[in-house]
Structures are given as structure tokens and as C-alpha cells.
Design a binder for these strands. Sequence first.
DNA 1: TTGTATGCGTTATCAA
DNA 2: TTGATAACGCATACAA
Lengths: 343, 343
Amino acid sequence: MDAEKNESVNIYDIAEMANVSIATVSRVVNGSDKVSPATRRKVEEIIKEVGYKPNAFAKGLGLNTMHTVGILTPNVADAFMAAAVYYLEQEMRGYGYDCLLSCSGFQPEGKRNQLDLLLSKHVDALVLVGSTYAGSGKDSKETDYIREAAKKVPVFLINGSVRGRNVYVTVCDDTKAVRSVTESLIACGCKDILFMTDSRSYSANKKRSGYEEAMQKTGLPLRQELIRFVRNDIGFVREYLHREKPVFDAVVATEDGIAIGVLKYAADLGIRVPEELQIVGYNDSRMALACEPELSSIDNGLKMMCIETVRRLMDILQGRRADKKTVVPCQIIERGTTRFLKR
Amino acid sequence: MDAEKNESVNIYDIAEMANVSIATVSRVVNGSDKVSPATRRKVEEIIKEVGYKPNAFAKGLGLNTMHTVGILTPNVADAFMAAAVYYLEQEMRGYGYDCLLSCSGFQPEGKRNQLDLLLSKHVDALVLVGSTYAGSGKDSKETDYIREAAKKVPVFLINGSVRGRNVYVTVCDDTKAVRSVTESLIACGCKDILFMTDSRSYSANKKRSGYEEAMQKTGLPLRQELIRFVRNDIGFVREYLHREKPVFDAVVATEDGIAIGVLKYAADLGIRVPEELQIVGYNDSRMALACEPELSSIDNGLKMMCIETVRRLMDILQGRRADKKTVVPCQIIERGTTRFLKR
DNA sequence: TTGTATGCGTTATCAA
DNA sequence: TTGATAACGCATACAA
């Protein structure tokens, strides 16, 4: 009816209207059992009537928490990051936590600044999405700022690994997935398998390891000219290949965009996919269904990573213990650009 | 060197160390000019040394603001929404504001709940992204909850229109864009132009109006069987067309995903695009570059909408006036699925 | 079961 | 130019 006049109604007002003390009102609001049913009903009624909502700042000041966790991502416009934020937000909300979102970009300075900013708002925990936060190594100076932040609140990394007290990581088994598809390609008779990536991040390195392991395992020589660094941009990759003219009969790409660039290039030259050229992308984005033929892609289990992260985050926040590192499996989605099964 | 021991150092500690009162420290922190240069230097030095950061809750309690604006979106996993959040976050940060993100889903109950939640955290303003928040009409009961929220903080809508005190809207000229492409198709000689949409939202209705206006303007009959409601899903659309077998020589779709479904269908039947069939998508997503031929699409000027929204939001927050409604133009991106120019 | 009093860390209003 | 002190709204230890 009239739940609108709660502009500045506070606990004192409610107390007065109900002829009780603010302590009692507080108890009712926080569901304490130390209050008689009669009193409770009376207070609850008035609260509902005037639409009283406790002031979050005052609450935060005393309790030093606002049930908010900070999410840091280099760029939410990226489909992968966006999906991660979506899953995280959903999960958190289920536990009654809100999300403070911040985009840091890929520069160290931005990362540090945004992290500090989030911290200054007293988030209860931090979730860092994306392998960019892991730096290139594991214990290098690059990631000191993360350990620094972990002194104040637990820090959770998704798709990146950093060691430190109070920092928890969730990753997927990129190495295994890439090794597996590479081996499948080799089994199909592919000789010149191009590995194309746009990054030297932690996860990109894991993928590359998978490629190299497959080569070694099957006794093939590891040729440097088969490893190419490009931009995750369909047009760029297409032109790059026209310019460089590498010899290859298969491609493992670390991004769907790269893979589709290859597909476009093949179409330009009339190379038949998958008969003459097999292509595997990464992340299983919507683009994988848009191209022709549809792109085989590796699903990195993002949703599971997010769910797993939040689950452990809540464990920590509620004083329980949690694994410091969790690995979730990737899934290989075979579509029209490969023929692993139909050899 | 050692900016880490700021765990619980407060304004009193600083005051004591500097032999001044907390009032003076506060003045220094907030850049008041009523403080002598000597005192200022001394205090600033100590603040830097111990890494003092004012407590955001206490500040919020006094000032009743934490320089945070709430962003509500039905689903950040959607590329369009994600991009919007990205642009908004970037812009806000430029003004020193942070973003509290919330995903409400498409159900009325979720919308109301998340809005209340955001409000309870004392955001300084709200930005609602997506036409779902505008309901289907303009002043209907559906949108009362928005006007309700607007009693507390200014509410900004992106891609949706709602009337009310303290609510501001930014939209793009969907009607004009769709009318324009439809007219172009008619000028190309298309007779059976399918309009395919996945929604009856405010913006979907605007697009439909554009289609209908073009028909009327050129004297063509408005045939109901040419307006189709489908899901924004490539596979769904493809099968839908195989099943329904409508007769058409052009398609205007309200989502790129729908348009690509049509493209796939055409490929199945060997229909040549754009010679025998022209297709226009919407939102100019990355998928538009992934398909073959590349999809002509309407760019709804999202970035400009976001920038424009934040600009006016800051005007309002700083006590200035701002336009209640801003319309930004769409842009038609012509690629391989149309031949407007080469008639 | 209920009430009183205090602390949480700021900002702002007065006096000095 | 400074300092003392009162809000701000809530939770809670302690008293009753």
C-alpha cells in the first residue's frame, strides 16, 4: 500500500512507535530468539508498515562488512569474462552476497589501482577473473600485489594460478585438453599442426604445454615455426595467413576468434574443412555456431569453475576450510571442423 | 616500502601521531584550504607513511553516499548487456564512481528484488540496462517499481523508455534504422520481407514499427504472416524455417543470432546470399564477422548511449539539470548479406 | 525478556 | 587556523 515513506526512518523511530528499545528492534530484525512472540509480532508489523530498512552503512561500520565481494576482470565486454561475471553473480546472490564489479584493463597499474579501490570499500573477498592476473610465472614479483591484498581478505583466482597465504585458485585442465585434441589430430594423420595463440598468459602457457606434450609423446619434432602469436581478431588472422603462407594441415587455436580467422582463410583458398584442414577453437563461444562449418571448440568449464569458486569462497567466509587449488576438466565439443571420430 | 600496516589505523591514530586533532586530519584528507601548509605537510607525511585509508563505511554513514551507482541488467552473459556494463563501468570510473552490479533476470519479481537490494546499499543512482525494464507500454503498472525507486535516487534507463519524475532515458532510434533498411530492401526489389524477432519488449516494438512504417510509406500491404516470433538461437531459427517454409526474399532480424539462423537455412537449401536472399541482423556482434558471408547488421550505438547516460548522470549527481530523454542514432553496417549499394 | 550505554570512524558545527 | 564534540544508525555487552 504505502511502503515508500522509509526515506529516513531509523531504528529509533521503530522503537518509539512500538514502545520498545532499539535493542529489541535490532533483535527482531536480526532474528534473535531472545524476544517474546508478542513483541516480535508488534515490531514486525510496524516495520512492514513503514517499510523500514536498516542502514547498510551503519551496519557495515559496526560489523565491518557489507556482504559484498569484489569482482575484478580486465574487461567485461569479453564474452568469456562476461559469462564468468554472470555465473559468479548468480551464485553469490544465492548466498546473500552482492558483487562490486571493477574492470582493471591489462596494465599492472590498473590492476593495482582497482584492487585497492575494491579493498577500500571493504569487500569481504575478492574474485579475480582471467589469467592475466596470474602474470606469466608463478611466484614472480608480478603477483605480489595479489598476496598483498590477500593479507586483508581472501582472494580467489579463476583461470589463473598464484601461490600465497589466503589466495585460492580455480583452474581448468587446459594442458590436458589441448594435449588430447592435438593427439587426436595426429591420430587423424595431421603432420603440420599449427598452434595459434594471442597471449603469453598463464593459461595460454598451459595450452601450449599441452600442444608440446602431445608432440613429444607421439615422437614428433617440436618445430618453432608451427607456434604463432596473433591477435584474437578474425580479420587479422585471415590476413596474417595470407601474408605468411605457412604450411599446415591442422590448427589448434587458443581463442574461437582465431580459429574462425583460419576458417575464413581456408574458404578464401578453397581449402576444404575438415577434409584437408582441421581446426579447433577455444571457449565454445556463440561464434562457434555462427560459422560454416560449425567450429569444434574446447569448453573450459567456466560455469563449473565459477560455481566451485563461490562454494569455497563461502566456506572461507563462514570460517570453514577450503582447498587452495581446484582443477575442473575441460570438455571437447566436436563439430564440423574436425573429424576425430570418423576416421 | 611498507604501505601495508593500515589494517585498523584510523583518523585518531593519525591525529595522535601528528599532534593535531582529528578535525585537522579530516581537513587534510578532504583537501580543505583551512589548514596551514606546515600542518598539512606533516599530516600528509604520516598518512603516507602508515598508509592510512579513511573507512568507507564511516564516511558513508555520515555523508550517506559511497560514490557507487547500481547497474541492473537482466543478464550480463548476453554480449550486448556485457558491453553496456563495460562502457558504463569505464565511464563511471572516470568520474570516481564505482559500480554495484546486479542481474535481475527477466521476471518482475527478480527485477523488484534486485532493485530494492541495490537501493538498500545506498547507491547514488541506478542504471537499468535493457528494454526489458520498460515493460511493453509506456505508463503501465508494469513500470511502477521504477518510479518508486526514482523517489529515492535518480534512475537512468538504457534502451528503454519510462516516464516519471527523476527517471531519465537514453534510447537509440531503432524505428528509423529498421525503416531505413526495410526501405533499402524494397528499393532492391524485395517483395516478401520477413521481420523476425524474439521479443515484444519496448525496443522490439520500436523495430517493428520501423518495419511497418516502411511498408506503409512504400504502399506495400502489411502481411501478418511476414512477422515471425522466434527464439534468438541459430539452431532454433534454422529448424523453424525448415518446418514453416515461409516464402521470402529478405529478412530483417532483431538479433544477429536470428539472422545467422536464416543464413544457415539458406545454405542448407542452396539459396544464394545476397543474390536471392538478403539478410540484416541487429547489434553488430562478433558473430556478424564469423559467418559467411559476413552479416550486415544494425549497430545500435550502445557505446554512445552509455557515454551519454553517464554524462547526464553526473550532471544530476552534481546538482545540474539534464535532459530527460536522449536519442542516439543507429548505424547500418553493410556487409555481405545485403546489396543496398550495388543495385 | 527487555533496556541502557557504548563503540564503530567519519564529517560538520561551533568555539576558541 | 585549530580543536572539542555532536551527529550518523546500528549491534551488542552488560544490567535489570
